[in-house]
Amino acid sequence: MATADDFKLIRDIHSTGGRRQVFGSREQKPFEDLVDLGWLKRSSVDSRATHYQITERGTSAAL
């Protein structure tokens, strides 16, 4: 179930172009929650960072 923080984060991601790069596993937790909701997808993972991209469902949630 989505929380107020989830909606705040997806709106922030949407307003800044729909993509986010995250460093460190602790910082990934809120983004992984949005992946579980179907609002974000992991577009790539490298040794230092994970890249996320907003989905259509995420765009709808952000509006």
Rank of each mutant, 00 (worst) to 15 (best):
residue 29 K to V: 06
residue 4 A to N: 09
residue 22 V to R: 03
residue 60 S to N: 12
residue 52 Y to A: 01
residue 39 W to K: 00
residue 42 R to W: 04
residue 13 I to W: 01
residue 8 K to M: 10
residue 36 D to L: 15
residue 47 S to R: 08
residue 63 L to P: 01
residue 10 I to M: 03
residue 29 K to F: 04
residue 13 I to Q: 01
residue 16 T to C: 10
residue 49 A to E: 10
residue 4 A to Y: 10
residue 49 A to D: 06
residue 41 K to D: 10
residue 42 R to Q: 06
residue 37 L to E: 02
residue 12 D to H: 09
residue 14 H to T: 03
residue 62 A to L: 04
residue 24 G to E: 08
residue 40 L to Y: 00
residue 51 H to F: 13
residue 11 R to E: 05
residue 30 P to G: 05
residue 2 A to Q: 04
residue 15 S to A: 14
residue 32 E to T: 07
residue 12 D to W: 12
residue 1 M to N: 12
residue 31 F to S: 01
residue 22 V to S: 04
residue 2 A to R: 04
residue 42 R to A: 08
residue 25 S to L: 08
residue 37 L to G: 02
residue 62 A to W: 02
residue 44 S to A: 13
residue 3 T to R: 08
residue 9 L to G: 02
residue 60 S to P: 02
residue 46 D to C: 10
residue 47 S to E: 14
residue 44 S to N: 10
residue 32 E to C: 06
residue 43 S to M: 15
residue 34 L to R: 00
residue 28 Q to W: 05
residue 1 M to F: 13
residue 30 P to D: 05
residue 52 Y to E: 01
residue 63 L to G: 05
residue 14 H to N: 06
residue 25 S to V: 13
residue 60 S to H: 13
residue 35 V to H: 03
residue 27 E to V: 07
residue 23 F to Q: 10
residue 7 F to G: 02
residue 5 D to Q: 11
residue 50 T to M: 08
residue 57 R to C: 13
residue 23 F to A: 12
residue 56 E to V: 09
residue 13 I to H: 01
residue 31 F to P: 00
residue 38 G to P: 00
residue 35 V to D: 00
residue 61 A to N: 04
residue 2 A to K: 04
residue 58 G to V: 01
residue 41 K to M: 14
residue 28 Q to R: 11
residue 32 E to S: 07
residue 39 W to Q: 00
residue 18 G to R: 02
residue 1 M to I: 13
residue 57 R to E: 14
residue 14 H to L: 13
residue 58 G to C: 01
residue 59 T to R: 12
residue 61 A to D: 02
residue 50 T to Y: 09
residue 37 L to V: 03
residue 15 S to F: 12
residue 8 K to C: 10
residue 52 Y to W: 03
residue 54 I to A: 02
residue 35 V to F: 03
residue 44 S to L: 13
residue 11 R to C: 11
residue 10 I to R: 01
residue 6 D to K: 08
residue 22 V to W: 03
residue 27 E to Q: 12
residue 31 F to I: 03
residue 36 D to A: 15
residue 45 V to W: 11
residue 4 A to T: 09
residue 52 Y to V: 01
residue 7 F to L: 09
residue 47 S to Q: 11
residue 27 E to P: 08
residue 54 I to M: 05
residue 36 D to V: 15
residue 59 T to A: 08
residue 33 D to N: 14
residue 13 I to A: 00
residue 26 R to S: 14
residue 7 F to D: 02
residue 51 H to N: 12
residue 35 V to L: 05
residue 40 L to P: 00
residue 32 E to F: 04
residue 54 I to G: 00
residue 6 D to R: 07
residue 3 T to G: 06
residue 46 D to F: 05
residue 56 E to I: 09
residue 40 L to A: 02
residue 29 K to D: 05
residue 46 D to K: 06
residue 44 S to G: 10
residue 57 R to Q: 14
residue 28 Q to G: 06
residue 61 A to P: 01
residue 47 S to V: 10
residue 37 L to W: 03
residue 41 K to R: 13
residue 18 G to C: 03
residue 48 R to F: 14
residue 56 E to A: 12
residue 43 S to R: 09
residue 31 F to D: 00
residue 33 D to F: 12
residue 56 E to Y: 08
residue 9 L to S: 02
residue 20 R to G: 04
residue 29 K to P: 04
residue 53 Q to F: 10
residue 57 R to F: 10
residue 5 D to T: 07
residue 36 D to G: 12
residue 41 K to V: 15
residue 27 E to T: 08
residue 26 R to Q: 15
residue 2 A to G: 11
residue 20 R to W: 07
residue 5 D to E: 13
residue 33 D to M: 14
residue 37 L to I: 06
residue 3 T to E: 04
residue 14 H to V: 07
residue 2 A to W: 06
residue 24 G to V: 07
residue 14 H to Y: 15
residue 14 H to F: 14
residue 32 E to M: 11
residue 47 S to H: 11
residue 4 A to D: 12
residue 40 L to E: 00
residue 50 T to A: 11
residue 1 M to Q: 13
residue 48 R to G: 14
residue 47 S to P: 11
residue 36 D to S: 14
residue 16 T to G: 10
residue 53 Q to L: 10
residue 60 S to W: 14
residue 7 F to V: 07
residue 54 I to C: 03
residue 47 S to W: 09
residue 58 G to E: 01
residue 19 R to G: 08
residue 51 H to M: 15
residue 12 D to K: 09
residue 11 R to H: 07
residue 62 A to Y: 03
residue 34 L to Y: 01
residue 50 T to V: 14
residue 37 L to H: 05
residue 11 R to L: 12
residue 42 R to H: 06
residue 28 Q to D: 04
residue 12 D to C: 12
residue 37 L to R: 06
residue 27 E to W: 10
residue 31 F to V: 02
residue 10 I to L: 06
residue 63 L to W: 05
residue 55 T to W: 00
residue 59 T to H: 07
residue 42 R to D: 03
residue 16 T to H: 10
residue 14 H to P: 00
residue 52 Y to S: 01
residue 18 G to Q: 02
residue 39 W to D: 00
residue 30 P to L: 06
residue 47 S to Y: 09
residue 41 K to T: 15
residue 53 Q to S: 09
residue 11 R to D: 03
residue 6 D to V: 05
residue 9 L to I: 04
residue 19 R to N: 11
residue 22 V to D: 02
residue 9 L to R: 05
residue 35 V to G: 02
residue 11 R to G: 05
residue 5 D to L: 10
residue 34 L to H: 00
residue 59 T to N: 07
residue 45 V to R: 10
residue 33 D to T: 15
residue 37 L to Q: 03
residue 58 G to M: 00
residue 54 I to S: 02
residue 52 Y to K: 01
residue 31 F to E: 02
residue 45 V to I: 11
residue 22 V to P: 03
residue 25 S to C: 10
residue 28 Q to A: 09
residue 56 E to L: 10
residue 44 S to E: 11
residue 40 L to D: 00
residue 2 A to L: 04
residue 15 S to R: 14
residue 22 V to C: 05
residue 55 T to Q: 02
residue 40 L to K: 00
residue 50 T to N: 07
residue 29 K to T: 06
residue 17 G to H: 05
residue 37 L to M: 07
residue 8 K to A: 13
residue 23 F to C: 12
residue 8 K to R: 13
residue 7 F to Y: 14
residue 42 R to T: 06
residue 3 T to C: 07
residue 17 G to Y: 04
residue 6 D to L: 10
residue 20 R to S: 06
residue 35 V to Y: 03
residue 5 D to P: 06
residue 59 T to I: 15
residue 10 I to T: 01
residue 11 R to F: 10
residue 39 W to Y: 03
residue 30 P to S: 06
residue 4 A to G: 08
residue 52 Y to D: 01
residue 16 T to R: 09
residue 7 F to I: 09
residue 19 R to T: 13
residue 52 Y to I: 01
residue 59 T to E: 09
residue 3 T to M: 05
residue 3 T to A: 05
residue 20 R to D: 02
residue 20 R to P: 04
residue 60 S to V: 14
residue 40 L to F: 00
residue 62 A to I: 04
residue 16 T to S: 12
residue 43 S to Q: 12
residue 32 E to P: 01
residue 16 T to F: 06
residue 9 L to C: 05
residue 3 T to K: 08
residue 2 A to V: 06
residue 34 L to M: 03
residue 46 D to Y: 04
residue 39 W to C: 02
residue 53 Q to C: 09
residue 59 T to D: 04
residue 53 Q to G: 04
residue 19 R to S: 13
residue 30 P to A: 09
residue 28 Q to E: 05
residue 9 L to Y: 03
residue 62 A to D: 02
residue 52 Y to P: 00
residue 10 I to K: 00
residue 1 M to L: 12
residue 5 D to F: 09
residue 30 P to Q: 08
residue 14 H to R: 06
residue 2 A to F: 06
residue 55 T to K: 01
residue 54 I to H: 00
residue 40 L to Q: 00
